[in-house]
Structures are given as structure tokens and as C-alpha cells.
């Protein structure tokens, strides 16, 4: 389990995270939602160890990150896969080289073994026949697939995704969402996704954490989100007419 206790983070005068506590379970896709400026990205970067919180604890299956030495921290980082908003693929490398990169850095596998692993994860994300292409030759959806393949190539225990659907058409976005959910269940990993996308909330939100002004304002499942009367959540999630109607239909149905 990934547990967060009383997390505080400030940048100068700005107190961005104000005592967030929550937990994320194995085999479930957990979504962190909230308006721009609510502290989602800072929260995710704190989980990843890119920001050091002033107060609070982040524990990876009982290992409190701030209490670990450099070697132990590096060990945890090897167990983390990350899918960035812009994919963050290495421009100078082909698809195959991008996915092979973590294997090259952290395993003693030979070229044949590495290639086998690369091809199997590329197949898993439904991206075959693109091994020799460079990131600049790929579409947005393909880049996301490569980023997911790179994130899972070392069999991570934790998968973090920062707005994996941004810039994608609705159909591709749903495919990427479903792929992340399938991988989460198949590999039995802890997945935390930062998103603005309400389709993702409805589609794959096993757990949803709603942040408002650096505070956890609500948490629950995608079913709970239909029933909640938390004003901040309702205003955020059902800001469009379409989702308002979806909610009304759901409640009438019940």
C-alpha cells in the first residue's frame, strides 16, 4: 500500500499542500482530481520524490521515503514507473531504445533478453512495428503507449501517470485509460493518476481523491461520486451539462 500522512509542501510564501492524508491500494486505479492550481502536480511530484515535503510521511509498503538512505531511495525509484503528461520520451532514441533504456541501466540482461522484454511490453500496449521509429514520427496516442511500455518494462510496483489523456481525442483517451486499468490489474500494481478528464473518473476511478486549494476535500469511488452532496466535488465534476444529465439519470435510476 502507498500511504500519505499529513503532507505539507510550500514554495516560499505559497503553502501548496496543506496536510493531505490518503492511501492507494494494489490492483486499483486511483485518480487525483481537482482544478488547476489545486496542488495535484505538486502532490504527484512529492510522491515521486521530486519535491521534498516540509512535513508528513510517504510510505511505500511500509518504507517511509524520508527515512531511507540514498541507496534505499534509489531502490524504490526502480520500483516506480511514470507516464508523463507530454510522454517525456527521449528524442534521440527510437521507440525500441526508449523502452530498453531502463533495462540497460538497471539490469544485467544481454541484448537478446532485453529485446524480448521490449517486444513483449510493446505488444502489451498494442504497439508493434514501431520499434525503429523516433518519437517525432509518432502520434500522441502512440507516444503515450510507448511511455506506458517504458514505465512497465521493469515490472514496477507503483505506476504514476500525470494527465495521461491530455491532448488525445476521446476515443484514444478511453483506450489509454482502459490500457492503464488492465495493466494495473494484470500486474497487481498501485496506480495513481493525476487527471482533469471526467471520462477517466467515470471509466476507471476505483478510488478518487479530490483536492481543493491544497486540501483533500473528498475521496471515494466512481459510484460514490454520483451520490455525493459535497458541493465542491459536484461543482467540479458536474460542471458540464452533459455530466449533470448523466448524474440526474443515474440518481433517477437508483
Amino acid at each position: 500500500m502507498l500511504e500519505v500522512k499529513n503532507l505539507h509542501k510550500s514554495f516560499g510564501e505559497a503553502h501548496v499542500l496543506k496536510g493531505i492524508s490518503t492511501s492507494f491500494e494494489k490492483g486499483k486505479t486511483s485518480l487525483v482530481i481537482g482544478q488547476s492550481g489545486s496542488g495535484k502536480t505538486v502532490f504527484l511530484k512529492s510522491l515521486l520524490g521530486l519535491h521534498t515535503p516540509e512535513e508528513g510521511e510517504i510510505s511505500f509498503d511500509g518504507r517511509v521515503f524520508s527515512k531511507l538512505n540514498q541507496h534505499e531511495k534509489r531502490q524504490i525509484r526502480k520500483e516506480i514507473g511514470m507516464v508523463f503528461q507530454g510522454s517525456a520520451l527521449y528524442d534521440s532514441m527510437t521507440v525500441e531504445e526508449n523502452v530498453m533504456f531502463p533495462l540497460k541501466m538497471f539490469t544485467e540482461d544481454n541484448k537478446v533478453q532485453m529485446l524480448q522484454r521490449v517486444n513483449s511490453v510493446l505488444e502489451r500496449v498494442n504497439l508493434t512495428h514501431a520499434n525503429a521509429k523516433y518519437p517525432s514520427e509518432l502520434s500522441g496516442g502512440m507516444k503515450k503507449r510507448v511511455a506506458i511500455a517504458r514505465a512497465i518494462v521493469l515490472n514496477p510496483k507503483y505506476l504514476f501517470c500525470d494527465e495521461p489523456n491530455s491532448g488525445l481525442d476521446p476515443q484514444t483517451a478511453i483506450l489509454i485509460d482502459n490500457l492503464i486499468r488492465e495493466i494495473t490489474r494484470e500486474y497487481d500494481i498501485i496506480t495513481v493518476i493525476n487527471t482533469h478528464d471526467m471520462n477517466s473518473v467515470m471509466e476507471i476511478g476505483d478510488k478518487i481523491v479530490f483536492l481543493k486549494d491544497g486540501v483533500k476535500a473528498w475521496e471515494g469511488t466512481k459510484e460514490d461520486i454520483f451520490r455525493t452532496d459535497n458541493e465542491a466535488v459536484v461543482n467540479f465534476v458536474y460542471s458540464s451539462k452533459l455530466y449533470k444529465k448523466v448524474r440526474e439519470a443515474y440518481l433517477n435510476d437508483k
Binding site: 515521486l48 520524490g49 521530486l50 531511495k73 534509489r74 531502490q75 525509484r77 526502480k78 516506480i80 511514470m82 508523463f84 503528461q85 507530454g86 517525456a88 520520451l89 527521449y90 528524442d91 531502463p102 541501466m105 538497471f106
Partner: peptide, 17 residues
């Protein structure tokens, strides 16, 4: 600099590199 703004450096650091 381009690697920095396109989060490629973050990707390296998250891996522990």
C-alpha cells in the same frame, strides 16, 4: 534545456538516474 522543459530529465531522475 529542451530535455528539462519536456520532462525528460525528470524521467531520468524518477528512475533514480
Amino acid at each position: 534545456g529542451t530535455m528539462r522543459v519536456t520532462e525528460q530529465i525528470d524521467a531520468l531522475e524518477i528512475m533514480g538516474i
